[in-house]
Design a protein around this nucleic acid. Structure first.
Lengths: 119, 119
DNA sequence: AGCACATTTCGATAATTCTGGAAACGTTCT
DNA sequence: AGAACGTTTCCAGAATTATCGAAATGTGCT
């Protein structure tokens, strides 16, 4: 009965703040859909119709919040959703839901064992 | 395969924004724990050590976002967490997770059938 | 009616966040 | 080395958000 939190208050506020913005929410959900293969910044900018400098700002926000991961691939920077972080956030929100009783909160979204880059 | 969303983009941004603030996140989680019986504004203010005028501002934010419900009881205003709204928000966040595949996302937090006001 | 209590509204200030063009930076190809 | 490409950093202005004391509003008791 110590229940030390998996997510700190600060972390949660940061993550929620990162998602609380039209472009970033769309961006995050886009990456959630894109799955393991991720998307390049340029492709995202085009998809969302956001100028690259603005997009870069938003990508940084999401990255600081730990919600997305970055990886270089040739000239492009590839971004992917951080599923564990998302799950942790949701878990934090629902923590103590129903006064500690187990009310069916079993959230999980593993990075899908998707066909990893067919090369 | 129309998949019309249970939560609109705007609604989600509003809700996330409401939660993306130290005091409000604590407040919401407090109400989630408090359950069906809710809490009066004054009690919340004391618990969170926030001046009443500030608290009122935050309560309004959460209420506009649809995350909490208000009900008068004698001289006090009682606030309760809106569980369905919370569930819908979480559902929206994870929508299309794993590219539409069912990856174990079964989130639910019904307002607990708690001992409703033992009077 | 009059008084005390619970909470909200007003208002002015401080702090933070968003935006996008231009310039800088790192990578790849010839 | 030099050129082209993809992305980020810099910057300054615009917009939004948070704070809290004081005053106003609403409710219930006597």
């Amino acid at each position: 009965m110590g229940e030390l939190p998996l997510v700190k208050k600060e972390t949660a506020v940061l993550a929620l703040g990162a998602l609380a913005q039209e472009h970033r929410l769309a961006l995050f959900r886009l990456l959630v859909r894109a799955g393991d293969k991720g998307m390049a910044a340029g492709a995202i900018a085009e998809e969302l119709s956001v100028p690259s400098s603005s997009l870069s700002f938003h990508l940084t926000q999401l990255r600081n919040a730990g919600l997305i991961l970055q990886e270089r691939q040739h000239r492009s920077l590839i971004y992917r959703a951080n599923y564990p972080a998302m799950n942790a956030l949701v878990g934090y929100l629902m923590e103590n839901c129903c006064a500690g009783g187990d009310c069916g909160t079993s959230t999980a979204c593993e990075a899908p064992a998707q066909e990893r880059k067919s090369a």
